[in-house]
Simulated assay, not measured.
Amino acid sequence: MSIAAFFCAYAGFSALCLGMDRHYEAVFDRALPSRHRVMLRLVGASALALSLWLSTRVWGWSYGAVEWIGILSFAGLMLIWWVSYRPVAALVAGAVCAMVAPLILIPTLT
């Protein structure tokens, strides 16, 4: 579950990153439409909330919140470092994380 929480956090940060004008224009070479901005921010916040839920589901609120902050730190640093050099690849990795996280979760939730 910690891996799935990390994937959700990275995907959430990637969506929030794409919700910014500068990063969206770097990837797509056009201005960010306002409807995409709202959608990306909602998806990003939802993915981060799901990451918190996954961390606290396994470890409880006391240790799960601490683990979640560590996961956020690691995912955020990875995205920051990677988006500086390869913005398209960093954000594609976010999409891959968003697709892989449910595949990891399905066996553990049943």
Rank of each mutant, 00 (worst) to 15 (best):
V38L: 15
A93V: 11
A65G: 13
V38R: 15
H36L: 14
V66S: 09
L40S: 03
G60F: 03
S14M: 05
L40C: 06
W82V: 04
F7L: 15
P33R: 10
A11S: 11
C8T: 02
I104T: 06
L48W: 00
P107I: 08
G64V: 02
A101M: 04
G94S: 08
T108Y: 11
L32M: 14
V96Q: 00
L16Y: 03
S73P: 00
S73F: 13
A49W: 07
C97P: 00
R57N: 11
P33T: 11
L77Q: 10
I71V: 15
L109I: 14
L42Q: 09
F13K: 04
G12C: 04
T56K: 03
F74I: 14
A93H: 06
P102C: 11
A47R: 02
A4P: 03
G70P: 08
F13M: 13
R37K: 15
G76I: 03
I104H: 05
R35D: 15
W68G: 01
A45M: 11
L50E: 01
W68Q: 01
A75H: 05
G44S: 08
C8A: 15
L54I: 10
A65C: 14
M78S: 14
M78Q: 10
I80G: 02
L79H: 02
I106D: 05
T56Q: 06
L103G: 07
D21T: 11
A49T: 12
Y85Q: 15
P87L: 08
A89N: 12
R22Q: 12
R35M: 10
V83R: 08
A45G: 10
L79F: 04
Y10M: 03
L42D: 02
G44I: 00
E67W: 07
W61C: 01
V100I: 15
S73A: 15
T108E: 13
L54Y: 05
S46W: 06
W68V: 01
P107G: 08
G64P: 06
G64E: 01
V38C: 07
P33S: 11
W81K: 12
R41S: 10
S73L: 14
S62E: 12
I3N: 04
L109K: 00
P107A: 07
S34N: 12
I69C: 05
L109A: 12
W61R: 06
G94I: 02
G76R: 03
A9T: 01
S62N: 09
G60P: 04
I69Y: 01
V88I: 15
P107D: 08
A31W: 07
G44D: 04
S55P: 03
P87V: 07
Y63A: 13
R30C: 10
R86H: 13
G64A: 04
S62I: 09
F28A: 11
W53D: 02
I80Q: 10
E67L: 14
L16H: 00
Y85S: 15
M39G: 00
L48M: 05
W81V: 13
A45Y: 06
A9Y: 00
T110G: 09
C8S: 14
R86E: 12
G19R: 02
W61T: 03
V38F: 12
A11L: 04
S55H: 01
M78C: 14
C8L: 15
L18C: 06
L16P: 00
F6M: 08
T108A: 12
R22G: 07
W53Y: 10
A26I: 03
C97L: 05
M39K: 12
F7A: 05
A75M: 07
F7W: 03
M1D: 04
A75D: 04
